[in-house]
Design a binder for these strands. Sequence first.
DNA 1: TTCCTTGCAAAGGCTTTGCACACCG
DNA 2: CGGTGTGCAAAGCCTTTGCAAGGAA
Lengths: 154, 154
Amino acid sequence: MTRAHHTTTATRTYIERLRQKGHRITPQREMILEALLASSAHITAEEILAAVQTHTQAINIATVYRTIDLLFKEGIITRVDLGGERIAYTTVRHGTHVHLVCRRCGRVIEADHAVLGMLGVQVRQRYGFAVDLEHIALFGLCRDCQQTGEQLAD
Amino acid sequence: MTRAHHTTTATRTYIERLRQKGHRITPQREMILEALLASSAHITAEEILAAVQTHTQAINIATVYRTIDLLFKEGIITRVDLGGERIAYTTVRHGTHVHLVCRRCGRVIEADHAVLGMLGVQVRQRYGFAVDLEHIALFGLCRDCQQTGEQLAD
DNA sequence: TTCCTTGCAAAGGCTTTGCACACCG
DNA sequence: CGGTGTGCAAAGCCTTTGCAAGGAA
C-alpha cells in the first residue's frame, strides 16, 4: 500500500515518536492514530475501524487491536473503562478528563480534573508510580439514582 | 436445594438487605456472597464459581454473573478494572483500596486510600455524584517501567 | 400458588492468534 | 534483503440469554 494520504501535525508528532522507538510506520498505523486524535473524547476499537474505513478498505480489525496495544504500551493512548462492557481509548493530548460513571443507570459525567487535587503528586511520592491522569474513571451513583431511593432502578 | 450450609454474620447482614429490597434469597446467592466476602481483595466471576464449587456443585456460572449484576446494582460490590481483560469484584466492606495498575508490565500495586485526599468530597459537592471510593483503579507506569527507559518492555 | 431464580446450552460479542504474504527501513 | 506488520479466518474467552423446571415467600 502507498503512503499518499493526508496526515495532521499531531499525527506526525506521534509517528515520529514511534519511529524513534524502532517501530515501523505503516499507513494503517497512521490512520488509526488519526482516528484517535480526531475523536472528541473516547473511541472504541470498532469505532476506529469504521473511521478508517471511510478512507480506505485496507484495514482490518486485528490490526486495530494490535495497534491499540502498541499505542497503549507506549503511553500514547489511555484505556478508559466506562462500565466493564465499554472499553474505550483516547489520546493523552485530549487533556485531563475524569469520568464519573453511574453504576446504576450507566450515565457518564465528565468532571473537571481539579477534583483530583494532589492525587498525582501523592502517588508519585509514596509509590514512585506515575499515574496517567489524563483519563480516569470513577464509579458510583449519580444524583438522580441516589434520589431514586433504595429501590432498584432495573 | 435445601438451605443447610453455614453463613457468616457479614453474609447474613447483606442477605437481609437483599430480602428487604424484595429479592429472594437462594443458597446460590448466599454462597456467592460468602465467596466475595472471603476473598482478601478482589475476585473474578470464575474464581467465585470455583470457590462455591468447593462446597457444592449446585451452582452455575450464569447464576454467578446474574448475582454479580444484582449485587453490583445494589451497591454491595464494586467492579474493578485491572487492565481491561481482568475485571474483578469486591465487597465494599473490604475497605478502601486504590489499585495502581502499570500499563506496561501489568503489575498491580495496592495503595493507601489517603492518596485520594478530598476527591470524594469534591466530586459530591460539585457534581452530586457519590463515588464508590472503596475500589479505584488508576493506570500509569510503575517505578521499574519508568526506569526501563523509553524502550518498550515487550 | 405465584412468579422469581436457576440450570443448561446455545448464542453472542469482542479480542487474540497462526500463518503466509506484503512491505518498511 | 531481513524482519516487522498486515490480512484473513479460525479459535478463544468471557458473558449473556431463552426456555423450562425448581423453589422462595
